[in-house]
């Protein structure tokens, strides 16, 4: 590893020469910009940064980054990233995925990467639709969604990605949206700092097949009333005048209240470091789809041993105990005999 200072870079240094080919107006552009503008601030090197993806609109992301990159097959990026991150702990491994890629065909890989706590940063662009295959409903589409493959409305219940990640024993779970660069960058920065698997759901507008899916909560005019920012150690409140807040009832239920009615002291204080994920889970259930006040920010950030490090530790212990492996010794580890 090189010990020279990290070179000063700008967005341009992190942008590849490939023409960006998302539909004009797609939310992916603002996410790409947020990432490209954030990286110069993270003190990381281009040659030590890898963007990995599966299939879908979001999965084109690596082609636009002037870093190492791998555009793989549908749903498998977390598995591929696991092999890379565990053998190359010196690298920063980002996984860019979508709701179909991560939660449908790749659901198994996602939950296992999260429970293992592999050091990867997963950005899941959730647009609640299949874009690249031209508009079928996805595992996050609301019930009754009318699409090309569900002309009479979909009948399957959607996933709540934050709930799913929490249920999969994730150590870092956050949510942000494509309309707020500052919030995205702060969330991505936190995810990148996390020592283990970080999962970020990014609400992303697909203006071609599902335009306005999040407009009710992310639009500039409604945002303050519809997004509930989570800040560690602070009472959970929102609204233009911070006039609303979240309380926990005696039966454990979370409820949105007027602060004036309950008093500030009654508000739930957000604790992203709680060992028990129960409260984070309850927060993730506060909104039943992007039509109600919805928490954004870091739901959970806890420490747990990182998978690759544990693998490495077992190797070190074995080498300390038995010495570095020697082939001639290996061959004779059972019983051998000699013929003269």
């Amino acid at each position: 590893m090189t010990t020279t200072a990290v070179p000063v870079t700008t967005r341009k240094d992190w942008s590849s020469d490939q023409e960006v080919r998302w539909c004009p107006g797609c939310g992916d552009y603002s996410i790409l910009a947020a990432v490209q503008m954030l990286l110069p601030d993270l003190g990381v090197r281009r040659e030590s940064t890898v963007f990995l993806s599966g299939i879908g609109c979001a999965a084109r992301f690596p082609y636009y980054m002037n870093t190492y990159g791998l555009h793989s097959i549908h749903g498998r990026a977390p598995a591929i990233a696991t092999g890379l991150a565990t053998t190359r702990p010196d690298l920063d491994v980002w996984v860019v995925t979508g709701d179909g890629d991560a939660l449908s065909i790749g659901g198994n890989h996602l939950i296992h990467a999260l429970r293992r706590n592999v050091r990867i940063t997963i950005l899941m662009f959730n647009n609640q639709i299949y874009g690249l295959t031209k508009g079928q409903y996805s595992p996050t589409s609301e019930v009754a969604k009318v699409t090309k493959s569900t002309p009479f409305g979909s009948v399957d219940a959607p996933f709540n990605p934050v709930s799913l990640a929490l249920g999969a024993e994730a150590t870092f779970v956050a949510r942000t949206h494509d309309m707020d660069r500052a919030h995205m960058q702060e969330t991505f920065r936190r995810a990148h700092e996390h020592d283990g698997a970080a999962f970020v759901e990014v609400y992303q507008n697909c203006n071609v097949f599902n335009d306005g899916a999040f407009a009710e909560i992310t639009g500039k005019e409604v945002r303050s009333d519809m997004l509930i920012p989570l800040h560690h150690g602070e009472p959970i409140r929102f609204g233009a005048e911070s006039q609303r807040g979240v309380v926990q009832r005696s039966d454990g239920r979370l409820e949105i209240v007027d602060v004036a009615e309950v008093g500030e002291g009654a508000l739930l204080v957000h604790d992203e470091q709680r060992a028990d994920p129960g409260l984070a889970f309850a927060l993730s259930r506060l909104a039943n789809g992007p039509h109600q006040p919805t928490p954004i920010g870091v739901f959970r950030s806890v420490e747990r041993s990182e998978y690759g490090e544990e693998m490495e530790r077992q190797i070190t212990v074995a080498q300390d105990r038995r010495g570095v492996g020697d082939l001639a010794t290996l061959f004779r580890s059972g019983s051998s005999w000699t013929v003269d």
């Binding site: 591929i80 080498q319 570095v324």
Partner: peptide
């Protein structure tokens, strides 16, 4: 045989097994 620096990954399924091996190969293993 960890003393040889061997990393073994018991994957969640067959696809993840080969996927992780591809990721490791991309990284030079």
């Amino acid at each position: 045989r960890k003393e040889f620096g061997v990393r073994t990954f018991q994957a969640e399924d067959e696809i993840a097994g080969v996927g992780a091996a591809i990721g490791a190969a991309f990284g030079g293993a």
